[in-house]
């Protein structure tokens, strides 16, 4: 006993204890829920059976219900469009901004920093802001688009089923662009200057330098940023809650929102868990890719 205490204070026991503390916490509040999630996806869990650990078995019924659901197709399609659209656009904008601020001019770093103000804001507040900006009758976005002659009459972004998903996507792109920009900027600044100088001496123009130096040198960073973009977009929930709440008529529902709705609006936790299980598999798969690309970059 004394030796164990001694080791806690002054040996390998100290380090082990520090790691075990955090890992046990994570095991209880993240690991166990992950396993439990799979269990309840095969059970009937409603308000009446909530208080028990195990619930009546449902076999594969929850899974069948989800796959047969009329909404499933729309939700899958919405999730794909929302994720790929958001990631593609915020990556492109982020990369363009990173390249722009990489030019040496007075105040570049400081002004670039201003963009990150959006990033520290709570998602819900960002959603409420865009809810107002995209308002149909009095929204400032409609006013600007009309005065530029891009649209003739107000677009009812949030309440039109054809545009509701895009109203959330616009907010998400605004929210996610600075993150892409700053990570890509870090990658850009790691490229040695003399590579560019050598290429310039060899007569390569700006475009050639971008294709033959910047892109190949940034490969690991780009992989990590794209993977993180997908991961964060699949985590996005607050914007949906603040802008469309998945509506109108489910037209802007994505998988993570549907899972939550089934559990906390319809109180059908079994079916909510089914979508949760399926989506977590997707997220973990993408994050394997992310971990691999950061490993390649920093020799983790």
């Amino acid at each position: 006993m004394r030796r164990a205490l001694q080791s806690m204070r002054d040996g390998i026991g100290f380090d082990t204890m520090l790691v075990i503390l955090a890992l046990s916490y994570l095991f209880v509040f993240a690991g166990l829920p992950l396993i439990y999630n799979v269990v309840i996806s095969f059970q009937t869990v409603d308000v009446f059976s909530l208080g028990t650990l195990l619930h009546p078995s449902a076999g594969a019924e929850n899974y069948e219900n989800i796959f047969d659901d009329r909404q499933a197709g729309t939700v899958l399609w919405n999730t794909i469009i929302f994720t790929l659209g958001s990631v593609a656009i915020q990556f492109t904008l982020g990369f363009a901004l990173a390249l722009f601020f990489h030019q040496n001019f007075t105040g570049a770093t400081w002004i670039r920093g201003l963009f990150l103000a959006a990033w520290v804001m709570p998602g819900l507040v960002v959603g409420v802001l865009w809810n107002w900006l995209l308002s149909g009758d009095f929204g400032v976005i409609n006013h600007v688009l009309e005065s530029l002659g891009i649209i003739d009459q107000p677009v009812f972004w949030r309440s039109n089923p054809d545009t509701s998903l895009y109203s959330v996507m616009i907010a998400n792109i605004w929210y996610g662009t600075p993150f892409n920009m700053i990570l890509l900027a870090v990658g850009l600044s790691a490229i040695p200057e003399d590579l560019y100088e050598a290429a310039e001496l060899d007569g390569a123009n700006a475009f050639q330098r971008f294709w033959t130096i910047t892109l190949p040198m940034m490969r690991a960073t780009i992989g990590a940023v794209l993977a993180l973009g997908v991961i964060f977009t699949l985590q996005q929930f607050d914007l949906f809650a603040a802008i469309t709440q998945g509506g109108p008529a489910g037209s802007s529902t994505v998988a993570q929102y549907w899972s939550w709705e089934l559990s906390f609006r319809e109180f059908d936790f079994g079916r909510g868990a089914v979508i949760s299980v399926l989506m977590i598999v997707v997220v973990l798969f993408v994050s394997l890719f992310y971990v691999r690309s950061t490993k390649a970059e920093t020799q983790l």
């Binding site: 790691v19 994570l26 991961i231 906390f264 936790f269 909510g272 868990a273 949760s276 997220v283």
Partner: peptide, 28 residues
């Protein structure tokens, strides 16, 4: 390395998906 890998993987779990099992477990 294994612990670090576990931590990295746990970082990406979406709260909107984890809340279902956590809520059911907490209510028990």
């Amino acid at each position: 390395d294994a612990a670090l890998f576990a931590v990295l993987m746990l970082q990406v779990l979406p709260p909107s998906l984890m809340v279902t099992p956590i809520f059911v477990g907490f209510s028990w």
